[in-house]
């Protein structure tokens, strides 16, 4: 992208091949190697810094246990089978709530995106509900569903619902009118219009909403488990802090982080399979 100038006496601007053009394979290889090592080196460096700080007692290792302690503890708990019931409990709630919320949000978003009367009837109401912090609804859900899995799943579903609903509605509304017109001229029925035009046209934007919702679902379940559950990772984190088992608390936090990454990568991967025509997100994994 740069231009090379000779000394002004010559006053000739020369556009010539750069290293990328002269050695394309080598430059690309080096660039990839640099990207991969940076992606690994930055977290690794921070972990080492943490380890060092704990080992040198710069930080209180009873409050902030060293990464090696957390890892060893996590390994022991996993091997002993203490960890899995909590992971499993959280996972079940997230998946159930996510599935229900996505289905409801998608259906309503589609309906409101295509029918302006439904939109007129429901949009102000849903906008108002959207801004209510979902955690504030937990007591309501507790009253509705009693103790047990019901309130947790409902809370995740309510959270996910709004993300998917908004992205679906705006995606359907922004389908170019030329696409609709072409379908209409060919005489497409409502179902055919959905199947051939609205569904594929809106899918990439819907999947972006679904991916954001995946992260938020994990976030919400951990918060609600701290308040009203007797198991799950959120409960583990809060409970171990109360018992001053800070290493266990960090094991829980790491598990939540891993769960969140895996879940949202899964949704991203599914999205890629579902929309082979859409341009991939730039950045990671880009060759």
């Amino acid at each position: 992208m740069t231009t090379l100038t000779k000394p002004p006496a010559d006053s000739v601007l020369v556009r010539r091949p750069g290293p990328r053009e002269l050695h394309p394979a080598r430059t690309h290889r080096r660039r990839r190697a640099l990207e991969v090592s940076l992606a690994l080196a930055v977290p690794l460096f921070l972990l080492l810094l943490w380890q060092l700080a704990a080992a040198q007692s710069w930080i209180d290792d009873r409050v902030y246990p060293a990464p090696s302690t957390i890892l060893a503890d996590g390994w022991d708990r996993a091997a002993a089978g203490d960890l899995w019931p909590d992971v499993w409990a959280t996972l079940k709630r997230v998946v159930a709530g996510y599935a229900a919320g996505t289905a409801a949000g998608y259906a309503l978003g589609l309906l409101m995106g295509s029918l302006s009367l439904v939109r007129a009837a429901l949009e102000p109401l849903l906008d108002a509900l959207y801004v209510v912090p979902k955690l504030a609804l937990l007591p309501v859900f507790l009253n509705m569903f009693g103790l047990g899995e019901g309130p947790q799943v409902a809370l995740v579903a309510a959270t996910v619902f709004f993300f998917v609903w908004i992205s679906t509605m705006s995606a359907v509304m922004s389908v170019p009118s030329g696409h609709r017109d072409a379908g209409q001229v060919f005489g497409a029925s409502r179902w055919q219009m959905f199947r051939h035009v609205l569904l594929p046209a809106s899918l990439p934007a819907v999947l972006v909403g679904a991916r954001i919702a995946a992260g938020v679902a994990v976030l919400v379940i951990v918060a609600s488990e701290q308040i009203a559950a007797t198991n799950g990772l959120g409960h583990l984190i809060f409970d171990s802090r109360a018992l001053f088992q800070n290493d266990v608390m960090f094991v829980g936090i790491v598990c939540v982080a891993v769960l969140g990454v895996l879940f949202s990568e899964l949704i991203r991967f599914a999205g890629r399979l579902l929309t082979p025509w859409a341009p991939r997100d730039r950045g990671r994994g880009q060759s």
Binding site: M1, S11, V12, L13, V14, R15, R16, P17, E21
Partner: peptide
């Protein structure tokens, strides 16, 4: 100057 050539040069006489 948005792209470089793969081989060869392009000279512009200018200051």
């Amino acid at each position: 100057g948005l792209l470089r050539p793969s081989t060869g040069t392009l000279e512009i006489h200018t200051s």
